[in-house]
């Protein structure tokens, strides 16, 4: 359980990091908190030629508002995000999800971007980013580009990152006042990998509530559905059940020692309905006042 030998690079600037990535092309791993990569290295599931440790690059831990988006740098730690008033206000969905992300201990160094780059199917942070319609910012010595969160994650531990690119940040569309959000997950113990997770957002648009529901931990990446509900409805339970049930039926759930495919599908429908109903009720109440 020790990593295979690698060349260790500790850049002081982003430019140096990108130059090192270009040099090793497909064979380098970027380390931020090390909470996901450390396990992969120790178990030798990955054996990169080089590890590029970005922890000493200054300025990568910023949380900044850019127009209607919040930009979180690649070294924003999960614990700092959880304690950030800015995130609490602008990203209530992420704030609701973060207590479920790993444990008190792992959030201390674990980063938001690292979780997205790792792309575990059950991870909460990429699920929230996808539901919010956020983007991933990628940098390489060739330049920068942005990819929608839904397109970035291509499967379990697979992303659209090119070998010479690193995550330069995450772009989160800010919530508006009156938005309803909800996050619910089931895991063996609180903080363990989610067996199933549901994240929902709803926003008033005239007479309608537009919603997006995302389910994580079921397939190899988050699955989403969007739609609308009449804002004047007196109850949303039936609609939420219908929408979550429709999505759950289309899924081909994973199977592992923790849960069968059938149980995952059941959870997906159930948690999805709960989360979506909560988000709609909250948005309906807020919008009505």
């Amino acid at each position: 359980m020790k990593p295979a030998a690698f060349e260790y690079c500790r850049p002081d600037t982003l430019e140096e990091a990108l130059a090192a990535l270009a040099e090793f092309a497909d064979d380098a791993a970027v380390m931020s908190g090390g909470l996901s990569l450390g396990a992969l290295l120790n178990t030798r599931l990955v054996q990169p030629a080089a590890v590029i440790d970005i922890n000493r690059i200054t300025g990568l831990d910023r949380i900044e508002v850019t127009g209607s988006m919040l930009h979180t740098g690649p070294l924003v730690r999960q614990a700092d995000a959880l304690n950030s008033p800015l995130i609490g206000e602008a990203l209530p969905l992420l704030a609701a999800a973060l207590p479920n992300v790993g444990h008190y201990q792992t959030r201390s160094r674990g980063t938001l971007a690292g979780s997205v780059a790792h792309a575990d199917p059950s991870a909460e942070i990429p699920l929230c980013l996808a539901v919010l319609g956020g983007e991933v910012e990628l940098a390489s010595s060739r330049g920068r580009r942005r990819v929608g969160a839904g397109d970035f994650i291509q499967g379990a531990l697979e992303t659209g990152r090119e070998g010479d690119e690193m995550l330069a940040g995450l772009l989160w569309p800010k919530s508006q006042s009156g938005d309803g959000v909800a996050f619910i997950e089931v895991s063996e113990r609180h903080g363990d990998f989610a067996i199933a997770a549901a994240a929902a957002v709803a926003r008033r648009d005239g007479d309608a509530l537009r919603y997006t529901l995302g389910l994580g931990g079921i397939e190899d990446r988050a699955r989403l559905t969007s739609g609308s509900a009449p804002a004047a409805a007196s109850a949303f339970a039936e609609l939420a059940e219908q929408a979550a049930g429709d999505l759950a039926r289309q899924l081909d759930p994973m199977q592992d020692r923790r849960a069968s495919a059938a149980y995952r599908r059941h959870l997906a429908g159930h948690l999805g309905a709960q989360a979506l109903e909560q988000a709609l009720v909250r948005a309906g109440m807020e919008g009505g006042t």
Binding site: G34, L37, G38, A39, N42, R77, R109
Partner: peptide, 16 residues
């Protein structure tokens, strides 16, 4: 505890 943060020392490199 590494620079005021909790760290799993098995997932942290000595270099860090």
């Amino acid at each position: 505890i590494l620079d005021s943060r909790l760290a799993r020392s098995c997932g942290t490199l000595a270099m860090q």
